[in-house]
Design a protein around this nucleic acid. Structure first.
Lengths: 189, 189
DNA sequence: CCGGGGTTGTGATCTACATCACAGATACAT
DNA sequence: ATGTATCTGTGATGTAGATCACAACCCCGG
């Protein structure tokens, strides 16, 4: 299980055994069951999570209680309500397990200590953050330029594995269409 | 003009005179006129830009030639086609001046040298990247949860200054609605 | 000072998608 | 096993917003 994290980091920065031990000492690990919450709207966000196994949804809930999926987090993903985490405010998003899930948890002060103690890891996080930013930008472009069907096909091509693991209802919510419309996209008229 | 950049960085990390001189030595500066391009689709992206003064649009153009505004960049903003920049591939986005503009330019290898030579600045970039990522995530949420009118009002509240500086046509493109619809939002029905 | 390109409003029409409503299927808990 | 909730498809209908079309405007360059 540690190997997952190490391999993940080493895709970007190589680490000695000692360095990885140092990194690992800043994390705690946690197992959660389907339907458990790792972040709850309104509460403080203590950790950023690295997903070792399982699947989660990051959701925003509007005033009417309607739920929107901001992102899915699968193996090897980092997930958090970053705004709440970095600014130490209460969560506006929630993070819930869609399957039994295993994560590493990193508290904000441990994150700072880790970066201060090992420059490489700050570089790693910078790299990760860039990629996350680029990914979000592309999702924005897909909202600007594509219709429901195109967004659906785009997602299907990019993450075929998702379709085995999450309900159409959730996919629809991620794509920003109603589940009825998504359902009709398969067999177009 | 240097002061702009220094003050901007020092909002996040304090610098000595020597450190700032070191930072500045990695940048070049450039003036561009309204309608000039800093990044052109299909070409290589040599620099990331820090906007000292002026205003730019970052645009995506679809197969039909229709233009979509990914973001505006005003004073104190960093802008780039980050994907193309970091991966040294050719641009899928374009960056064009909407006003006469003054920027600092940072080439990728200078960026790496700068980070390697001064840890503080890597920390600064990491912080900036986080904020950018958070901002994009909120824009995604606005696409998922708000209709055209709500997105418009949201933008109006957040960046009132923009409305004095850019045409409704461009705003509509940023918001993902047609300019006719945007126009009708003022005087509802 | 005149002409043309970009900007804005507004009407008429069209369409993608939402919403509501129902029914069969599947999974989950007691 | 048996009921209950959650998922999925599909019809009927409503609506936000796109598209097309035109007229008035402003601003800049020659």
């Amino acid at each position: 299980m540690q190997d997952k994290l190490r391999q993940h980091i080493e895709k970007i920065v190589p680490l000695t055994d000692d360095e990885f031990a140092f990194v690992l000492s800043h994390f705690t690990s946690k197992k959660a069951k389907k339907r458990d919450w790792l972040i709850q709207e309104g509460k403080r966000v203590k950790h950023v999570f690295f997903v070792v196994s399982g699947l989660l949804k990051l959701v925003y809930r509007d005033e009417l209680g309607k739920e929107f999926i901001v992102s899915f987090a699968m193996e090897d993903w980092w997930e958090c309500d970053y705004l709440a985490y970095y600014t130490k405010t209460s969560a506006t998003l929630s993070l819930q397990c869609l399957e039994d899930t295993e994560v590493y948890c990193l508290a904000l002060e441990d994150y700072h200590k880790l970066c201060a103690g090992l420059q490489k890891i700050e570089h790693f996080f910078l790299e990760k953050s860039h990629r996350g930013h680029i990914g979000s930008q592309q999702r924005i472009i897909s909202f600007l330029t594509l219709n429901a069907k195109e967004r659906y096909e785009h997602l299907l091509k990019r993450y075929p594995a998702l379709f085995q693991r999450v309900s159409k209802t959730l996919l629809a919510s991620y794509l920003g269409v109603s589940r009825e419309t998504l359902s009709r996209l398969h067999s177009p008229k």
